[in-house]
Design a protein around this nucleic acid. Structure first.
Lengths: 216, 216
DNA sequence: ACTCTTCTCAGGGTTTTCCACTATAAATTT
DNA sequence: AAATTTATAGTGGAAAACCCTGAGAAGAGT
């Protein structure tokens, strides 16, 4: 059964965003929005469900939602699903793909990725976003490679991490020396070693590394 | 200072919903949307910030966001904030109120509550949603006080943001001066002003602010 | 006109950071 | 046992950062 236009239904848990996104979808020419609701549970009760081709689902719990989608697909195999969810972890991404969604992108996707996804799904194709593909690749690599990537932290000694933390906390060399009950010169030496190990030229550089490493 | 129309800025982490909600807001007659972005950190860089009266913030972590709002309010005390967040717990709700937001409602709020909230805030009033009030009552009998924005100082100037960026890029004062074709003394003065405006004591502090702001 | 802010620059100072090189005891690894 | 790494500490010096003060010009706002 081919429709001339694809009929879509939107699911978003928040009324305002549901309405707002619905409006946005209504302005797309390649699909026609026939309904919206705030929960996936509600869609099988919708009177216009038989007209729906695509369900666009916003959900914060990808796995739980994938599970629901799988159940619904067993009853209404005609329905296609485009899932919008937070950035997935390597485990959940396989669960979601297994549920048979036609599209899966992250909330943070840019508008053009959105357009591509919704067009692809409405044309009967499949679309997975960049982040999803990445996690998928990552999860399949895990089965082949057990080698844990050496972290930057292993490279630094405990003391050095401590110094790094204090430097990035706006402490002066003198203050750090007092705090740790060691000589200023020792602190200076540690700091200098950190420069070389981390390939930066001053404390500002150290601070950025510290922020990236999460020690502050 | 009264504007004839209230100027709003939208913050939503997800590009699509940001765009969609922005469109919805543009159709409200009582406010005028002048800008949008995906992160609260970005707003102080916006060139049109001086025109903004209200910032409508969608955020998943209410407390973290409240903290950011408090900091921003210390620099731009003129700004009003309407916060949209998940249902709060009894502890976080006080933190959020204390941050001085003018409005606070949950994502799941119905459209009419939305309308009431945004109207109230744009008229200079305060609006807390039903769920928020409930949690507030539940949390305590003690008085909650909104944190006053202590400084009347306005936002960072363009030049200051530029200096901030270069400092956080590990540039020395001298190098910055050459880069911008101004005197070292001028750069020093800017840097010192940044210390005071941002409440930090050295370049390491500036760097952390810069990272948080996303200028590096 | 007057105020406020920004951007600019300077003198003259103190403190901190950064560099180069050396060095020793302790712990860890090989 | 020997070699390496870590943590400690030093001398001495150059560079940069930081502090305080003052001040003129340009521009925006009241």
């Amino acid at each position: 059964m081919e429709h001339s236009t694809t009929h879509a239904c939107l699911v978003h848990p928040h009324p305002l965003e549901c309405e707002a996104v619905a409006e946005w979808l209504r302005r797309r020419s390649y699909i026609e929005l026939v309904g919206k609701c705030n929960s996936l549970d509600q869609i099988i009760q919708l009177p216009y469900l038989k007209e729906v081709d695509i369900v666009v689902v916003f959900a914060h719990h990808a796995e739980k939602t994938a599970d629901q989608i799988l159940k619904i697909r067993k009853l209404y195999s005609r329905l296609k699903f485009l899932l919008l969810a937070p950035s997935p972890c390597a485990e959940s991404v396989r669960e979601v793909i297994r549920s048979g969604v036609s599209g899966y992108i992250v909330f943070e996707a840019e508008l053009d990725e959105w357009e591509r996804a919704i067009r692809a799904v409405s044309e009967g194709k499949v679309y997975y976003g960049q982040e999803v593909m990445l996690k998928l690749a990552e999860s399949s690599l895990e089965t082949f490679i057990q080698e844990p990537a050496p972290t930057t932290r292993d490279f630094l000694s405990k003391r050095e991490v401590e110094i790094l933390r204090l430097v990035a906390s706006e402490y002066s060399t003198n203050r750090i020396a007092n705090e740790l009950c060691i000589s200023d010169k020792t602190v200076e030496t540690h700091r200098r070693n950190l420069f070389h190990k981390l390939g930066v030229k001053n404390s500002v550089g150290l601070t950025k590394v510290a922020v990236r490493m999460g020690v502050v």
